[in-house]
Amino acid sequence: MILKYSNFEKSAFLTEKKFFLFYGPNFGKIESCITILKSKLNSLDRTLKFLNLFQDDFLRHSFTEIVNQNDQDDIFGNKTSLIFSLSDLRVSSEIIKLITSQDLNIQNIIFKTGPIQKGLKIRKFFEDSPDCLIVPCYEDSLLEKKEVIMRVFENENIEISLDHKNLLASLLSSERLNLLNELNKLIIYIKTTKKNISNALSILIDNNSHDLNNLVYLLASKKRNDFWNEFLKLQQTFSDEIKFINIFSKHLEKILFVKDKILLGLTPLNAMKSLRPPIFFKEEETFLSQIDLWNFQNLRKAIKELHLCQMSILNNEKSSKSRFLTLITKILDL
């Protein structure tokens, strides 16, 4: 049975189901679900114990052996629930076989893992089985990020305006653990420096803008290796593809504008100088070198594809993330 994350905490199924699977790219949401579930189960049985197991445990014992070792009450009469962290799904068939057996006496079995493709047998089994509950944990929406930000600031007794909350939501990660870590760093900075939120945000924006601007110039210069190296360094906080698309699209439009001016008879330097706002003087040489790297057809094609990709993200299409990365790869090959 499938249950949305937003409905999880208040669902009656938490105490009715025996087997749980939490999956997706948002490990913060997954951990949140498990914390809620443990609290609910403990409210019914204070003696219930939770045993955490990992992929390495399968090197010593099979999944079946681990479950059989823990399916009886301990000497004090305490029951055990098992929590498996799966880094791969090679044990899927064994999991399904054991769960469907009639003589299984375990209290609960909880699984957590990363993204699972639609159609894979373990996902389909949990979705179709009335005894199981599966919760997809996707990246936080803008609204969810705002709710988390408000909750964190309220807990710290720090006032935050609507504008500052919206700005933070647009800048920070869409993965819950990263989002909370970034917010905690911001809270610590505000408390230790005695500075207000505006000052803290100005530093955050400056750092963020510098990083994105550097990526934009590397991509426009088609420096494949340098771009991916920087992108990988930033990927933990690189959560706003829409913002990057906006900045990069405007950069390509500037190149297109300059090329049009050159056709009208201006020199490349004078054409660039006519841009408003102007190109930062330290980046002028790099910008001029990009003019010859792009022809009119590729510029218009890239700008159009960036717009379509942006619409895909705004519509929350499941393939939007992979579409964004595919488009970046194509641009580097233009």
Rank of each mutant, 00 (worst) to 15 (best):
W294S: 02
E94F: 02
A12F: 13
I122M: 04
T80F: 03
K49S: 06
F76D: 03
P136L: 05
K233A: 07
S39C: 06
N246F: 07
N184F: 11
Y138G: 09
D57G: 04
D292L: 11
Y217T: 06
F296T: 10
E283G: 10
L264F: 10
L234G: 07
P277G: 03
K10S: 11
I328K: 01
L204I: 07
A169C: 05
F287Y: 03
I116M: 05
V135D: 02
S39P: 05
N246P: 11
N26R: 03
N7M: 10
L59S: 15
N105F: 12
Q235P: 10
I328Y: 04
W294R: 04
E156S: 08
E144F: 11
N70V: 03
L288R: 04
I134T: 04
N78H: 12
A12K: 15
L308F: 13
V67T: 04
L186A: 03
F111C: 05
I187N: 05
D71A: 07
L293D: 10
K97W: 02
S62E: 05
E182V: 06
R46A: 14
S221T: 09
Q107R: 12
I36N: 08
K194C: 11
C132R: 00
S274P: 06
F238T: 06
D74A: 06
F296A: 08
M311T: 13
Y23W: 02
T326L: 13
S239P: 12
I203P: 12
W228M: 05
L234D: 07
L288A: 04
L288G: 05
S289D: 12
K282N: 08
N68C: 08
I303H: 00
S322V: 14
D56G: 13
T286K: 13
P278W: 00
F27Y: 15
Q107H: 14
E159W: 12
R46G: 12
P136V: 05
D103Q: 11
P277H: 03
I34Y: 00
N70Q: 05
E144Q: 06
K195F: 08
T15K: 07
S81Y: 00
L104F: 06
